[in-house]
């Protein structure tokens, strides 16, 4: 614990995050994602972080994706720090009102968490707790504005803060979402509200991303392209059906099916997963060429082991200091 306190103490004095400085240096940034435990075992956060930390410049902690309760993103971000990596703490507008946003933003800063990523949050009807009362007191744009407001030293009521936080703020966009023009404006709104970097929904067909990137040209924001390696055709079909905003082309699903055809058991599994990794690597190579893309955000979604494979396989390892 003493070591941890020293680490956090150092982090407190950091005004620049590693993520921010790598963007500014023009590096092709790689971030990863660690799924928070579906329970109280914090060791899992540390283990999963250790698995990927040498392959990522920062690690996202998701926030109750699809309304399925997992360990709080703030708590997990703290353990990411403890495991020696830099967290990006996700905050969804679905489960917090403005009071809890302020409260958690103070707490996150106190614990050394600097990168905060805001999102609307999936509808709870898609998850395991559909009867819940959703909050949406703020939307992601207003939440960004709130975080930036706190950086000015007062709360929403105008009362002076006992300790002013400082964050590197991020947000998301989905190039597949409609209407595209409105989503392009939302990127601008998010930037104006305080977002400096963006992570996209998982990209498969890159043409829509290319078009979207033309739309936001000149916005002066950093963009990480979302990558989710496919474990198999079933997962791809599930994602198309159940994960909002995902569009996986049939062609990729067919490739996964073909890779496993005629094989059984572990052999089949390994061949199909290998093809999934191959698709992810090809996508990364393709997005590298799209003007305005500053890196990738690899979401393992329960398959964190894929992250080192993909990073090594695309020549993105070792990561810069």
């Amino acid at each position: 614990m003493i070591v941890l306190l020293v680490n956090l103490e150092e982090n407190r004095t950091l005004v620049e995050t590693r993520l921010k400085s790598l963007f500014e240096r023009g590096e092709f940034v790689v971030t990863g994602e660690v799924g928070p435990p579906h329970g109280a075992n914090h060791q899992l956060v540390i283990e999963r972080t250790r698995l990927v930390k040498d392959y990522c410049d920062a690690i996202n902690i998701t926030d109750n994706v699809r309304g399925i309760p997992t360990m709080s993103s703030m708590t997990c971000s703290y353990y990411v720090l403890e495991a020696g990596a830099e967290p990006v703490m996700q905050m969804s507008a679905r489960d917090r009102n403005r009071i809890l946003f302020e409260s958690e933003l103070y707490g996150a800063y106190a614990m050394g968490i600097r990168n905060i990523l805001f999102m609307t949050g999936d509808h709870t009807l898609l998850g395991s707790h559909p009867q819940t009362k959703m909050v949406y007191d703020l939307d992601s744009i207003q939440a960004l504005g709130l975080a930036r407001h706190l950086m000015g030293g007062t709360d929403l009521a105008g009362d002076k803060l006992e300790g002013t936080p400082n964050y590197y703020l991020g947000a998301t966009f989905n190039p597949y979402a409609d209407p595209m023009e409105m989503h392009v404006w939302r990127v601008e709104k998010k930037r104006d509200a305080g977002a400096q970097f963006f992570q996209t929904q998982a990209i498969y067909d890159t043409s829509r991303l290319e078009e979207f990137m033309k739309g936001i040209r000149g916005y002066k924001v950093k963009v990480l392209t979302g990558i989710i390696p496919l474990k198999g055709p079933k997962m791809a079909a599930f994602m198309n059906r159940q994960i909002p905003g995902i569009k996986i082309p049939e062609e990729f699903i067919e490739r996964l099916e073909k890779a496993g055809s005629g094989l059984k058991g572990a052999e089949k599994r390994s061949a199909v997963r290998g093809e999934g990794l191959q698709i992810a690597k090809e996508t990364i190579e393709a997005v590298k060429k799209i003007p305005g893309v500053n890196g990738v955000h690899i979401m393992g979604v329960g398959w964190e082991e894929s992250i080192p494979e993909i990073v090594k396989g695309t020549g993105l390892h070792p990561r810069p200091k």
Binding site: T120, D122, M134, S140, N174, P179, W185, R186, G245
Partner: peptide
């Protein structure tokens, strides 16, 4: 809007339909 959003559609809006159903 299934989320009562004020600043435009969320990322789940596709082909004119809501992510909820």
């Amino acid at each position: 809007c299934a989320k009562g959003l004020l600043n435009g559609p969320c990322g789940g809006s596709m082909d004119g339909m809501c992510e909820r159903d």
